[in-house]
Computed example of a mutant assay.
Amino acid sequence: MSEDSPPAAEEPDLPAAHGVPPSLPALFMAFARMSLAGFGGVLVFARRAIVDQHRWMTADEFNETFALCHFLPGPNIVNLSMVFGARLRGLAGGVAAFAGLLLPPTLIMTVLAVIYARFGDLDVLRRSLAGISCAAVGLLIAVVFRMMTPLFKRMDALAFILMLAVFIAIGVVRLPLQAVLLIAIPLSIGATFILRRKVAA
């Protein structure tokens, strides 16, 4: 952070990379652009806009916020829009981000649903959708690696162990998601709390 930047204590809820919160129209437009660009999932474009483009969050803060939203009921990216908008601009900010995220694609999907209902049996359309699904998987894998970058930089062994354990439990052993989270969340919070106390001591 430069010497001219405001001290962190003055704006505890804002990342050091950005001292002035965006306006409500700016929040709406930012999330509207994310949703319109978000072919294959908005998460890829949300991280790029929030962390890389606007610098409203650091990479670590985005990961922590997304982790919280991932453990809440409902679509992760919708939760993220509400939590992120409310963090910067209160309830009005949450509503602005939420509206920007959902309103444009809702209007587009309404039109596309009418078109699909009429032409959905065409073979060329089915092949196009299959190709789009491959691109969506690639985008998701790319953003997962980007979100793992802070962990690699910190070389946090505990985080890697917990991440691997959850992946094996859900992806390989096929244990119920709810049961895994009931164990993984308190375990990870407790382990992190103990380790940070040791470091502080």
Rank of each mutant, 00 (worst) to 15 (best):
S81K: 10
G120P: 03
F145V: 14
Y116T: 06
G138R: 14
P104T: 07
F62D: 03
M57T: 01
H70D: 15
T149N: 07
P105L: 05
G74R: 09
M147L: 15
S133E: 04
V114K: 14
A136L: 08
S81D: 09
R118L: 04
V83S: 09
G100K: 12
I132Y: 01
A92L: 03
T149P: 00
P150G: 05
L140H: 07
R87W: 01
A97Q: 04
G131P: 04
G100Q: 07
M82N: 12
L102K: 08
V78N: 14
I132T: 06
I108R: 11
L112N: 09
F119C: 06
I77H: 02
V83D: 07
L68I: 10
L102G: 15
T110K: 05
H70T: 15
P73T: 04
E64G: 02
R118D: 11
I108S: 12
F84I: 11
M57I: 02
G120H: 09
G90I: 05
R89S: 03
L112S: 13
T149D: 11
D121S: 11
A67Y: 11
M109F: 09
A136C: 06
A92S: 04
W56D: 02
G94P: 05
T149G: 06
A117G: 10
V111W: 03
L88K: 00
L125R: 07
T149H: 12
M82L: 15
S81F: 02
C69A: 03
A113Y: 10
D60E: 10
R89T: 00
A59I: 00
M147D: 02
G94D: 03
A142G: 14
L129D: 03
P73W: 01
V78M: 14
G131E: 13
S133T: 13
V83G: 01
F66P: 00
I141T: 13
F84T: 02
G131F: 08
T110M: 14
A59C: 01
A86C: 13
H70C: 15
R127V: 03
A136F: 01
G90V: 03
F98E: 04
A86H: 08
G120M: 11
A67Q: 12
G120Q: 10
